[in-house]
C-alpha cells in the first residue's frame, strides 16, 4: 500500500511547569460548547489535571480514544518520590472512571486538537496555559494510505451507546425519537 505524508498533532506536557490553575479545562469546555463559548464547565473538558497539591502532583492529561472495557492496569509508578497510579497517565475514556465522559449522558469525550477551518495556530488549552506546561507539537509522519476515516464526535458517541445498549435498542430509540 502506498505511503502518504500526514501532519500528526500532539501536546507535550511539561508537568513540572503546571501549577494547577485549570485554565486549560475552562477554555476547553468553553470552546467545545455549542454555540461556541456559550457555557463553561470543566467537567466537560477534554483535558483534565490530576491535581494533588499536598503530594505535589500536577499532571495534565488530554482525552484519547474511547474504550468499552476497562483494562487490567493497576500499577503504581514512583517518580521523584511521588506515587502515581497507572490510570493517571492514561488518556482513555474508559468505564472505570468518570474522567472524559460527558457528566450528563456519560458519553465519551475526546480531544480533537480544536480542529477547525481555518486552522487555529494551536489548541486552545495550549494558548491559555501561560505557565507553558502544554507545548503543541506538529510532526510530519508517513502513514499508510486508505487509513480509516476519523470518527466525529457523534459517531464516537453512537458507538459508545451501541456498546452499552446494543445496536437494536439504539436503532429503535433513534427511530422512535425521529418520529414527528
Amino acid at each position: 500500500m502506498a505511503k502518504v505524508k500526514k501532519i500528526v498533532k500532539s501536546i507535550t506536557i511539561d508537568a513540572d511547569k503546571c501549577n494547577g490553575c485549570k485554565a486549560c479545562e475552562v477554555i476547553c469546555s468553553s470552546w467545545h460548547a455549542t454555540p461556541r463559548y456559550s457555557s463553561n464547565n470543566p467537567a466537560r473538558s477534554r483535558i483534565r489535571i490530576v491535581r494533588l497539591p499536598l503530594k505535589d502532583i500536577y499532571l495534565p492529561v488530554y482525552a484519547g480514544e474511547y474504550t468499552e472495557a476497562e483494562c487490567t492496569g493497576r500499577d503504581k509508578y514512583i517518580i521523584d518520590g511521588k506515587e502515581y497510579n497507572e490510570c493517571d497517565f492514561c488518556r482513555a475514556s474508559c468505564p472505570s472512571r468518570a474522567l472524559f465522559h460527558e457528566p450528563d449522558s456519560g458519553l465519551p469525550l475526546k480531544c480533537d486538537m480544536c480542529e477547525e477551518t481555518p486552522a487555529l495556530e494551536k489548541p486552545k488549552c495550549v494558548e491559555w496555559c501561560l505557565a507553558e506546561a502544554l507545548i503543541y507539537v506538529e510532526k510530519e509522519e508517513e502513514v499508510e494510505e486508505n487509513e480509516q476515516p476519523k470518527l466525529g464526535d457523534v459517531e464516537i458517541g453512537i458507538g459508545a451507546m451501541i456498546d452499552k445498549y446494543g445496536l437494536q435498542q439504539v436503532l429503535d430509540t433513534v427511530a422512535r425519537m425521529a418520529k414527528p
Binding site: R36, Y37, P103
Partner: peptide
C-alpha cells in the same frame, strides 16, 4: 459540581477574556 455556567454573548465575552490574558 459538574454543571454549566451559561454566557449571554459568548463571542464578545471570549474576546474580552482573551484581551485580558494578552494584557497579563
Amino acid at each position: 459540581g459538574t454543571k454549566d455556567i451559561n454566557i449571554a454573548d459568548p463571542a464578545k465575552y471570549m474576546e474580552l477574556c482573551n484581551d485580558v490574558l494578552k494584557y497579563i
